[in-house]
Nucleic acid binder design. Sequence first.
DNA 1: TGCACATCTCAGGGCTTGGTGAGATGTTCA
DNA 2: TGAACATCTCACCAAGCCCTGAGATGTGCA
Lengths: 109, 109
Amino acid sequence: MSTSLPLVCEPRLDLQAPDVTDAVAVAALLADRTRASILRMLADGPCCVCELAATLGERENNVSNHLAKLRDAGLVRASRHEANARFLYYEREDEAIARARAAVERIFR
Amino acid sequence: MSTSLPLVCEPRLDLQAPDVTDAVAVAALLADRTRASILRMLADGPCCVCELAATLGERENNVSNHLAKLRDAGLVRASRHEANARFLYYEREDEAIARARAAVERIFR
DNA sequence: TGCACATCTCAGGGCTTGGTGAGATGTTCA
DNA sequence: TGAACATCTCACCAAGCCCTGAGATGTGCA
């Protein structure tokens, strides 16, 4: 019998699959116009839900849903307004934001 | 008649909706494990489709689909191997990568 | 206490998207 | 030229996600 093996593609064996888990999770959050806008707006200071909703032309309902995702990811936190506790003000969690930023940056190096 | 208007939430009027179009488009590309891994691997140098597929444990079929999206976005380009034109080598388009990076960075500031 | 308001939660419908299979294109080599 | 190989394209299906509507929670004020 012939010893010739099919000359199949010989991919380099030293290549390793990178771990992109964190970057993908962050990107999934940014990959929505409403959430990306919220994060960008909060970079300039805290906002309440109604401000975000009015500025973005979205229902407070919907904005609240997106804020919940950002909150679950630890990227933002909410606190009641000191003078009028009816309003919930959201602000960025700077440490988590820095980690998210770094994770994405690692994709591009 | 009373001049009292309902004390509805008074959002700041100086707030503007940011333009996050580019950042969202980039994030949508990064928000997939296969595409993010491809971009990360190409940061270390060109790879052919079969190398990417083997390393990531995906079908070449599927990898090719994802490469098409990255190509359509201008983030990577393909060229045939000089010695064996059967292999298509993909590499990053550094200028487009820089623009993508900057767009995402603008979200975080 | 009762009403108005700001916000939250959750289930359901519709759209988008990733993986797959099948077939087409282009390259190498016998 | 024909066979093997690397890659591409496209249609299909299933899974996931966004928006919406309805109802619940918490706060301020009369």
